[in-house]
Design a protein around this nucleic acid. Sequence first.
DNA 1: TATTGTTATACTCTATAACTATA
DNA 2: TATAGTTATAGAGTATAACAATA
Lengths: 166, 166
Amino acid sequence: MDSPAQPGPKRTAFLLSQLGALASSRFAERTREIGLTPSEAGVLRLIGRTPGLSQRALADRLGAVPSRVVPLIDSLQARGLVERERSSTDRRNYELRLTIEGAQVLRQLREIAEVHEAELLAPLTGEQSAQLGNLLARLAGANALDLDLHRDAGREDPATMTQLHR
Amino acid sequence: MDSPAQPGPKRTAFLLSQLGALASSRFAERTREIGLTPSEAGVLRLIGRTPGLSQRALADRLGAVPSRVVPLIDSLQARGLVERERSSTDRRNYELRLTIEGAQVLRQLREIAEVHEAELLAPLTGEQSAQLGNLLARLAGANALDLDLHRDAGREDPATMTQLHR
DNA sequence: TATTGTTATACTCTATAACTATA
DNA sequence: TATAGTTATAGAGTATAACAATA
């Protein structure tokens, strides 16, 4: 049915693109099951990590435009997962925080991420998975990938798969 | 460096998503320099591999809808890279082929892919690159990925995520 | 009646820029 | 004047479904 993979060039970069897309799409499918888009999942994760941050700061960390953040927070707020509170020191901006329910959903999200990872790497042995993780980490570091979202990974590493900006 | 103990989730799936997106976006940037979107590049590759195929067959292999293929071929044809010829056995469908120029652009595309891969994997040693290629191939095989396609972003599911190029 | 390709339409997502309220 | 947030609008990209030609 499909051609024999072969010609000259290796296809590692190609595979990386495809598998990355597959991983993103599978993760999106899982978050959808709990009523969240990947973007919303990313927002919950960032607010959980930095309670009290403003929409502007959130937009910056997402690499998004402020106007885009508005309906995102609107939706999460309408579902009771996030709350806006006017800053007492500068009434122009909000301080964003997770509600109790929001924190609970974030925990669900972390479980989802673990299951997602386990299933994705199921075809590999434990050693192979570790190897893959190391190689990818090396690539990410060398490419100065936006690990901004991952620095500080000391204790609360949320492991959300997708950000707003792709 | 790496948090060893702890139920802290690994981040391999996350890295895979991020690096895949990075690889796709870098490749898109390169194809754009020769006036092609990633989708168009994929079309050229498929036609080059299977000369004479119909738009319907192309759509199927792209995981796209036939109506989407029309403007894609229109554009490539207008630039003299692809030609439509009515099938003599079934006049309903076209047989798609690359023109001389189209074949030339396809060769450019292959060079671009090689450079792209080399730069992406530059941070790794040759052995590490080979290792990574093997691990990714194993994952792709286990997940029944179609290795002929160059997917830009999540596909695999009718209602998935947004595509990435701009 | 079924199928290939086409067109027309609508929907989704996103950015841009104008607007308000605070500073 | 500058900044946080909001709203309105437009643009790109895509799918859906009706359509014409051919089988």
